Amino acid sequence: MSTFSTALSTYDDIAAEYYDAARHPTCANFFELSAAFLVPRIQKYAPAAKAILEVGTGRSIVAPIVAANKLPLSHVTLLDQSPRMLEHSRDWGRRGARLLVADATSTGLPRTSFELIVSSLGDPYNDANFWQEVSRLLRSGGVCLFTTPAWEWSERFRGESHRRVAEFVLANGAKALVRSDIPSVATQSQMIGGVGLYLDEMQELDAAHLSGPLSSKLLFEGKTSPLPLVRGLAVKKR
């Protein structure tokens, strides 16, 4: 189990303003890059999936695509450990999706239940326990679409004391630190392969993929960095 020397906040503490692009432009930039990877692949895999799980949902990226393609929302489970984050998807629950408050690493859901699992910016739970749960939940031939901030950006931006946390400065001036594990590509691949999954596709997204202004946290010495900012993975179960 992961341990931390720093006292961490929960996502309940930041849920109210998490999607405020003016207050948290880095999140907004990461969301855009994550969506650039996920949206076309959700569109590809969702029509054939009879059961879809979105992990760490917050404001769902899956449900709008399912609805737009006139697919049954009853096939979709939206899971988040934070009740307040899950409130961002409350309307999808009213329209037929299942909303579930649970830990991403121990969901309590039946094994081999899903053809498609989606996680946008899954660094709060990106460890071996999560990937073991993905392997347990996926049916044979199933796919997990996963995005994470890139290790190269994390190593360049974060100091040693904040290597495994993300910092949010809230509207009231308070600082909230939440868990954020961003392993190297080699370590990520080992975690995936170690639980009987395999990496089918990987895409690196940099600032060139962004349409709007960059957060200062994505600039280095005042200039746009060519380093990857978000990495997208398509992981499959044999």
Rank of each mutant, 00 (worst) to 15 (best):
N129K: 11
G141A: 14
R164E: 14
E155T: 15
T147K: 15
E155V: 15
A97M: 08
S5L: 09
Q188L: 00
Q190S: 06
A104M: 13
A207H: 05
D13E: 12
E201K: 09
E87Q: 13
P47A: 07
L99I: 07
S113H: 13
D127N: 15
H88F: 06
H162G: 12
A35D: 07
V185G: 02
D80M: 07
R163V: 12
H88D: 01
Y11V: 06
E133C: 14
T107C: 08
A28F: 01
H75Q: 13
S161N: 12
E133V: 09
V178H: 11
V235D: 06
P226Y: 01
E221H: 03
L78P: 14
P183I: 07
P183Y: 12
R164P: 09
T107S: 12
A102M: 05
E133G: 14
I65T: 03
E115C: 01
F146L: 03
L214H: 02
P124H: 05
A22C: 04
G96E: 04
G93K: 11
S82D: 02
V195C: 11
G232P: 05
W153E: 03
A51Q: 11
R164T: 15
S161M: 12
P213F: 04
Q188R: 08
E221V: 01
T57K: 04
S216N: 07
G194P: 01
L53M: 04
A51I: 12
D206S: 12
H209C: 08
R111F: 00
L210T: 01
T6V: 14
E160R: 13
H75A: 12
L137P: 02
A104D: 07
L145A: 11
Q43M: 13
P213E: 02
R156K: 09
L218V: 10
E32W: 05
H24D: 03
L79R: 04
Y45C: 04
R231I: 14
V178A: 04
E221F: 00
R136G: 11
W151P: 01
G122D: 07
G193W: 00
E152P: 10
V235T: 08
K236H: 07
T26K: 03
I192M: 08
I42V: 13
P228K: 00
F31E: 14
F168D: 03
N69K: 15
V76Q: 10
A234W: 00
K236R: 15
A97I: 11
V165G: 00
V178N: 11
A21R: 12
G96W: 09
P226G: 00
L229P: 02
R164F: 14
G96H: 08
A174P: 04
R231D: 06
I192E: 09
M202L: 11
R136Y: 02
F114D: 06
Q190F: 05
S154C: 14
V118R: 04
K50G: 13
A15R: 10
A49S: 13
S89Q: 00
R179S: 09
R139V: 05
I65W: 15
L229R: 11
K217E: 05
L177W: 15
S120L: 02
P110G: 03
R98N: 01
A28P: 06
V62T: 00
H209E: 08
V235K: 01
G108D: 07
G194L: 00
D13A: 13
R84Q: 10
Y18F: 15
A36K: 12
R90V: 02
E152M: 08
P64D: 04
E160H: 14
G96Y: 11
A150N: 04
Q81V: 10
V230T: 06
A68F: 03
L214R: 04
S216R: 10
